[in-house]
Amino acid sequence: MKTTTKIFGLLLLVPMVCSLGCQRGLPGSVGDVESSNVQEVAGNFELQATAGGAAEVALPEPTGFANITGKISVVGSIATEKFVNYAVNKDENVCSNETNVRVQLDGNGGLQWGLLFYDGPFKSGDAAWDHADYVATANATLDGDLAFDQKACIFLSRIKAMRVGQTLKILNSDSVGHNAKLDGLTSANLQIGAGADVDYKPGFQESKPFGVSCSAHPWMGSYIIVRDNPLYTVTGEDGSFEIRNVPSGIALPMKFWHEVIPSGSMQITINGETQAVSRGGFELPALEAGQDLNLEIVINADAFNNAL
């Protein structure tokens, strides 16, 4: 090859490399958004806008109150040993590993620690929506049986539900120190000495439960959900539940949650009718005032066995 050709070749290469280098896009950069769409959002959120928040959505008027009772059970067998939290390696004289199981069933397949909650709009304090019994406890301190306790380095509730406005007592019934790290919108990390208690007063509603952990004992785990309405329940040892004084005459979007299958899509059978639910969501048709609805929810064991 002639020397000139080589020189020119090299010289040509330089700008090519330059321009190639420039074309390399940054990974994940926002890239080609449509400016008309961007402007549409910007126009709706102009800084001078005086509105304090979203326009109030007109809600249907409930006709009264109804009650929902029922049971959540699992058909098929679950390899529950898969869901034992990992080994205790600290404070062994106090901490137990025996019941630290994330899926707890009774002999009839009743699922404990299932959470069922109303996932629609609610008017707190409005007599048509918020039953007097609930109004009375709107600012209560959840103490005694309602407290959130830990014993033998196990959170005694695997899921705890509460309302914005309420205060949750977090107890430590152990002889070692614990702390409760609460990773919610109102986050906290509270040291709790042996036999002591602390208060947790969240300020925001959560759309799903958040994790609770103990930094001193990393195998400990539980969940708390904070709602702006009282329409929730956690299943008992036999899988049974009750939600009293649910507004009647309105459709009820509901959500089911369990820590092992918190967001999966699954088939569940509600009162004999099988339906697919996504992220635990399903809708109950409007109830009649004074009605006592019995709700049987059946989940196939596969949903658990396929989960982590």
Binding site: A180, K181, A188, N189, L190, I192, A196, V198
Partner: peptide
């Protein structure tokens, strides 16, 4: 007050 985002808890007692 503790240190947010870390295992360090605050001690209110």
């Amino acid at each position: 007050g503790g240190i947010e985002g870390t295992p360090m808890p605050g001690n209110t007692k």
